[in-house]
Amino acid sequence: MLVTDVRQIDSYYRALIGRAADDVGIFYVAVKTTGVFCIATCRARKPKRENVVFYTSFKEALDAGYRPCKVCKPTENAYTAPPEVAEAIAWVRQHPKERLSDSHLRQRGLSPERIRRWFQQHHGMSFQAFQRSLRINTALEELKTGRRATSVAFDHGYESLSGFGYTCKKLTGAAPTAAAHVILIHRFTTPLGPMFVCASERGVCLLAFVDHRMLETEFRNIQKEQQARMLPGENRHTRQAEREVGEYFAGTRQCFGLILDTPGNAFQQTVWQALQAISYGHTVSHAALAEQLGQPRTVQAVAVANDANRVAIVVPCHRALGEHGRLNSDDSGLARKQWLRDHERRLA
C-alpha cells in the first residue's frame, strides 16, 4: 500500500539515504520526477524528500505507473536470496545426498535462524523440509535408473530402508518402489518479480508470479487433477523454463520451445493454442479470437478460457484484449500485462 504515515516515511527516507540492506523488500521508493521505483540499497543518486513516495510492495508501484529502476532492479533483487541463504542453497544442490544441519551451518558462519525465516517467508517451509524434498527427488530419479531401493536409501543418508520408505510415502504419497507421480516446483526471479514454475515428467504445468492471487488454489487443483504431490526441485523442464523466460526478458527470445503439461477441456486447449499463435508484439481481441475459432462460443467463453491459462508469458494471455481494446482486470495484474506488451512492442 501507499505509505502515508509521516514518521514512517521519514524512517524509510533515512534508510534510503543510508542504503540500509535490512530494508530491502520492506519498502519501495518511487521517484515522481523520473517515474522509476527502487529498493533501499539503490546506488543511484538519491532524490529529494519531496520527490518520493513509498509503497510496501512493488506491485503497487507498478500499478501506479512507475517503472523498475535499471540500476537496482527492485523486482529481482528484493526477492533474491541473501548471500548466506544463497550459499546454503548452492551447497545443498551440489551435495543433494547429504544433510546440512544447523550445527554445520553455524560452522560455516551461517545463521540457521535467518535461513529458516527466509525459507518460511519465500517458500512456506523450513530449510530442512526443503532439503528433505530435494533428497527424495534425487533418490526417486536414481530409482528410475534401476538402482535398488536399499542402496539408494543408504547412499542418501537414511539409516534404514523403512525410514527412507516412510519419508518417501509422506512426501510423495507412494512407496519408493511404486510409480509415485511428483510435480516439481522451482522459484526464480524476473524483472517483474519472482515466479514459480511447476513441472511433471511430461512438461510444464504452471508458470506464475508468486503473488498470483489464486496460486494456492492452482497448486491444489494441479495436484488433484494429476494425482500427484508437489515437491521443491528441478528437472529439465523447470530448467528450460527459467532459461527461456530469462531470454524473453533479455529481449533475445520471441518464441518458446517448452513442452507443456496443462490439462483442460477441448475448448480451453483450442483457445490456448490460439493465444500461442498470436505474433510477438501484436494483440488480438477476445471477439476476434472467438470469430477465428469458428465455434458457437461467446466472447465471454473465450475470456474465461484465457483467464484459466496457468502458463503466463509462454501462453501469452497478455496479448488478448477485452472489450474496446482494454486489458481485462484479472488477478494477474494490469500493470504487468501492460509492461509485457510494451516490452514486446519495443523489440518486435
Rank of each mutant, 00 (worst) to 15 (best):
R346W: 01
A78E: 02
R341S: 10
R117T: 10
R19T: 01
V315I: 06
Q300F: 07
S200W: 00
A250E: 05
L161H: 11
A81L: 07
T138E: 12
F219D: 06
P176D: 07
R7T: 11
A180G: 10
T238W: 00
L134D: 00
G146K: 08
V31R: 09
P83Q: 11
T270P: 00
E142Q: 14
Q292M: 10
D331N: 14
F130Y: 15
R243P: 02
C198T: 05
C69K: 07
E247A: 14
A175N: 09
S329T: 07
L327A: 04
T283M: 01
Q223C: 13
V299P: 01
A199P: 00
I17L: 15
A228G: 08
V92Y: 07
H181Q: 15
V314Y: 00
E225G: 14
P232G: 11
F164I: 03
D211C: 08
L140K: 09
E98I: 08
K32N: 15
E244K: 02
I17E: 15
L105T: 06
G233Y: 02
G257Q: 00
L16D: 04
F267I: 01
V85E: 03
S133P: 08
S126W: 05
R326I: 01
I89D: 06
E244S: 09
A179Y: 03
Q240V: 00
Q8S: 13
R297Q: 10
Q223P: 07
H212R: 15
E84T: 11
T177P: 01
R326W: 04
I222K: 01
F256Y: 02
V311P: 00
K169I: 04
R93G: 14
S200H: 00
R236F: 10
A320S: 09
L289E: 02
F256R: 02
A348F: 04
E242Q: 08
R229H: 13
R147A: 14
F119Y: 05
S332V: 04
S200E: 00
L143E: 03
G246Q: 06
P296N: 12
V197P: 02
G146N: 08
K48M: 12
A86R: 15
L100Q: 07
E201G: 12
R114I: 09
R187A: 06
G65T: 11
E201M: 05
W91T: 10
